[in-house]
Amino acid sequence: MEIYVQSCGVYPNHDYTWLRNDNKLIKPPVLHSVDRLRQKNAPAVILSRTGEELRLLVFALKSKQRCDFQGREIFNSLVWIAKTAEEPFLRMLAASALRKEDEFLEVIDRSIIDYDNELGFKVLWTQIQELSLTRKAGEQLPDQTKKIGKNSPVLTHKLAEELDKHKLPNQEGAIVVVTGIVDSLTLKQAGVWRSLSSLVEQETWEEFKKEKDLFIGKPLEILRLIYTYLMYCLERIC
């Protein structure tokens, strides 16, 4: 399993940097594929899949112990990249992050410490790698229906419960996205299985179909749309 941590040091020359669990300065390769699905520099939790590889991304965890030279809180972000067999563990981590569980947050917080090196911080990888959770992930089959809602405490808790009990659907790309200001159309077009955004006003789950799938098996609807568009164009020309 690959693990990446982003943090910074105390002084101005200690900018935010990604570090892999072999202590190499490498950005997680998955970042570019999820950037448009999250609000930058804001808390977010994302689960995604490519082939047999699962990724959990947790952004902007506030450090309780570390501040920069101006007294501003330092934020830590983490990425786990693992094989499908590790899905139960990643689901439990995601649920813990969504609930902001003390055990999860404290392990992460004490694993990233100030250090006198070029980065200004050091990661105690053993503590993160040995992170364990007392509960066991459920193995119920997932509800395949795609749903979106407001990033609220109520829906966040419901999503965490669903991750506790149910497997992830076997789909490619982003599966779970919990973020700040991202519009619902972007999340729907990406076909995210479960998404929560602060820009969505719906206080309960809203079911939807991925837009490009709406006309599968419906040739008459496609022809009707083409005809309507052509008539519109002719009217504009005339």
Rank of each mutant, 00 (worst) to 15 (best):
L61K: 09
L61T: 09
L61D: 04
K62P: 05
K62S: 13
S63T: 10
S63L: 07
S63F: 07
K64C: 07
K64H: 15
K64D: 12
R66K: 12
C67L: 14
C67Y: 15
C67H: 15
D68F: 06
D68N: 13
D68P: 10
F69H: 14
Q70P: 06
Q70M: 15
G71W: 03
R72C: 09
E73D: 15
I74E: 03
I74M: 05
I74Y: 04
F75P: 04
S77R: 07
S77I: 11
L78P: 06
V79F: 04
V79D: 02
W80H: 03
W80G: 00
A82Y: 04
A82F: 04
A82N: 06
A82D: 14
K83H: 14
K83S: 14
K83P: 06
T84V: 03
T84P: 00
T84N: 00
A85M: 03
A85H: 04
A85Y: 02
E86S: 03
E86A: 03
F89M: 05
F89Y: 08
L90E: 01
L90H: 01
L90A: 02
R91Q: 01
R91H: 00
L93S: 01
L93F: 02
A94S: 01
A94G: 01
A94R: 00
A95Q: 00
A95C: 02
S96A: 11
A97N: 04
A97E: 02
A97D: 03
A97T: 06
L98S: 03
L98V: 05
R99C: 05
R99P: 05
R99T: 07
K100W: 08
K100S: 10
E101F: 04
D102V: 13
E103G: 10
E103T: 11
E103A: 14
F104Y: 09
L105H: 09
L105A: 11
L105R: 13
E106Y: 10
V107H: 06
I108V: 15
D109K: 07
D109S: 11
D109I: 13
D109W: 08
R110D: 09
S111K: 15
S111W: 11
I112A: 10
I112Y: 11
I112P: 12
I113S: 10
I113K: 13
I113A: 11
I113Q: 12
D114E: 15
Y115L: 04
Y115K: 08
Y115Q: 09
D116I: 05
N117W: 02
N117M: 01
N117Y: 02
E118D: 15
E118R: 12
L119N: 11
L119T: 11
L119G: 09
L119S: 10
K122C: 08
V123Y: 05
V123Q: 05
V123F: 07
L124H: 14
W125N: 07
W125V: 07
T126R: 11
Q127F: 11
Q127T: 14
Q127K: 12
